[in-house]
C-alpha cells in the first residue's frame, strides 16, 4: 500500500535520512523501531509531506505522492498522529475532531464523531473542554480520534505511548490493534519496542537514518542486536 524507496531528507545541510526504503502492506501494522534521533519522526513527516525530501520516492497505492502538498496526501487517505499530540489547544474537543475531517468538509461527519466517542467515551464527556486542558492520556486519545476523522486508509502513529502511565499505554496499544482489526493499515513509531512488536506484523529497525534490520515482528523480536539494543534483554 505504501512504498518508500531510497528516501533522503535533510535539515539544512545535515542529512537525517540516508536512503530509507520501507514497505507497508494493506491491513498490516508495521512498526519502526529505533533510538532517539534515528530519523523515525523525520520519516513519518516526510511521508505526510510536512518535511522536505531531497531524493527518493514515496508511492501510495502505486501512485507517486512525494510531490503532493500535505493536504492532498490527507485527502488521498494518509493521516498522522504526530509526536507530542499537537492538538489545537484553544479549541474544544469537538472542534478538534471536526477539523480532523477538514479534508472532507461539507460532508456529514456525525457518524465519524460518534465512532470516535464510542472508541473513547471520555472524550464525549468532556467534548466542550478546550484540548489544552486535557490530561496526557486524553490528549493522546483526541489526537488519534482527530486523525481518524479524515477516514484514513493509512494511519501514521508517532510515539503514541510517550509520557503515558503504563495502564494507558496498554489501552492505547489495544485501541491501535483494534483499528487494525477494523481494516486500517498502520505505520507505528514507538519507543516502547516490546509493546510495538507485540502487536505488529512487520518491523524495521532504523539507526542513524538507515534501515539496519527488517522482517516479520517475530523475526525482529528474536534478532540478537535488537534484543540487546531495544528490548534490554
Amino acid at each position: 500500500m505504501l512504498s518508500v524507496e531510497n528516501l533522503t531528507s535533510a535539515y539544512g545541510r545535515i542529512e537525517a535520512l540516508h536512503g530509507v526504503s520501507i514497505e507497508v502492506g494493506a491491513g498490516q501494522i508495521v512498526t519502526l523501531v529505533g533510538a532517539n534521533g534515528a530519523g523515525k519522526t523525520t520519516l513519518l513527516r516526510a511521508i505526510s509531506g510536512v518535511q522536505p525530501i531531497t531524493a527518493g520516492s514515496i508511492r501510495f497505492d502505486g501512485k507517486p505522492i512525494e510531490r503532493l502538498p500535505s493536504h492532498d496526501r490527507v485527502a488521498a487517505g494518509i493521516t498522522q498522529v504526530p509526536e507530542g499530540r499537537q492538538l489545537f489547544a484553544p479549541l474544544t474537543i469537538e472542534d478538534n475532531l471536526k477539523l480532523g475531517a477538514w479534508s472532507r468538509r461539507g460532508a456529514d461527519v456525525t457518524p465519524e464523531i460518534a465512532r470516535v466517542y464510542a472508541l473513547f467515551p471520555m472524550l464525549y464527556e468532556r467534548r466542550s473542554t478546550p484540548a489544552g486542558a486535557l490530561s496526557g492520556g486524553q490528549q493522546q486519545m483526541l489526537a488519534i480520534g482527530r486523525a481518524l476523522m479524515a477516514r484514513p486508509r493509512l494511519l501514521l502513529l508517532d510515539e503514541p505511548s510517550m509520557g503515558l502511565a503504563p495502564i494507558l499505554v496498554d489501552q492505547i496499544l489495544e485501541t491501535i490493534h483494534g483499528l487494525k482489526r477494523g481494516g486500517l493499515t498502520i505505520l507505528l513509531v514507538e519507543q516502547n519496542a516490546r509493546a510495538a512488536l507485540a502487536i505488529a506484523d512487520r518491523a524495521y529497525v532504523l539507526e542513524t537514518g538507515r534501515i539496519t534490520a527488517s522482517g516479520t515482528a517475530a523475526e525482529v523480536q528474536v534478532d540478537e542486536r535488537v534484543r540487546e539494543a531495544y528490548l534490554g534483554v
Binding site: 510536512v50 500535505s70 493536504h71 490527507v74 493521516t79 499537537q86 489547544a89 477539523l99 477538514w102 479534508s103
Partner: peptide, 13 residues
C-alpha cells in the same frame, strides 16, 4: 494560528 504543523497534518492548506 495555534499549531501550523497540526493544521497541515489534518489537511488544511
Amino acid at each position: 494560528a495555534a499549531n501550523r504543523l497540526a493544521a497541515r497534518l489534518v489537511g488544511i492548506d
